[in-house]
Write a protein that binds this DNA or RNA. Structure first.
Length: 135
DNA sequence: ACCATGACTAGAA
DNA sequence: CTTCTAGCCATGG
């Protein structure tokens, strides 16, 4: 049978579509869902970087996709703690994507994470490496 | 199908 | 320290 399905396997037709996964309980293993899954594993009061998540998925060079996936995190259930995901220097690179902007910083402070000038203070201490914690 | 953009990262100058 | 370059790959026009 002629299978026209490409090996590329579109991880997600669209971000909005990710909101509604297969109702049969058969969730598609898309890059995005993996990102959300790892993001949910981030413990309270901890943060991680896009690259760390990407590395955990085996594609550390695709950190951009992690960030892009977070773009739809707000529409995903259960809620994805996207506010715990920042760039490699602890900069709240995605704070402008929150609604309202500044909520990200507020949430972090709520978890005991100090934010100064859009940068996480003591980022190294709060950093949580999924590749080490997740087995 | 091509081109431009993007919540990134690592390395080089 | 800053600035630039290249790689990554999905999304949208």
């Amino acid at each position: 049978m002629p299978s026209k399905k490409s090996k590329k396997s579109t991880p997600s037709k669209s971000v909005a579509k990710l909101n509604k996964v297969n109702p049969s309980g058969k969730r598609e293993e898309s890059f995005f869902e993996l990102v959300y899954e790892v993001a949910r594993q981030i413990p309270f009061g901890r943060v991680t970087s896009y690259g760390a998540i990407a590395a955990c998925l085996g594609t550390k060079l695709s950190a951009r996709m992690v960030g892009w996936a977070m773009n739809g995190a707000d529409k995903i259930n259960p809620t994805v703690p996207a506010h715990r995901v920042v760039n490699r220097v602890g900069l709240l690179s995605g704070k402008h994507h929150f609604n309202p902007p500044g909520k990200m910083e507020k949430l972090l402070k709520k978890e005991g994470i100090l934010v100064k000038d859009d940068v996480i203070v003591n980022f190294k201490e709060k950093f949580w490496d999924p590749t080490k914690e997740v087995m």
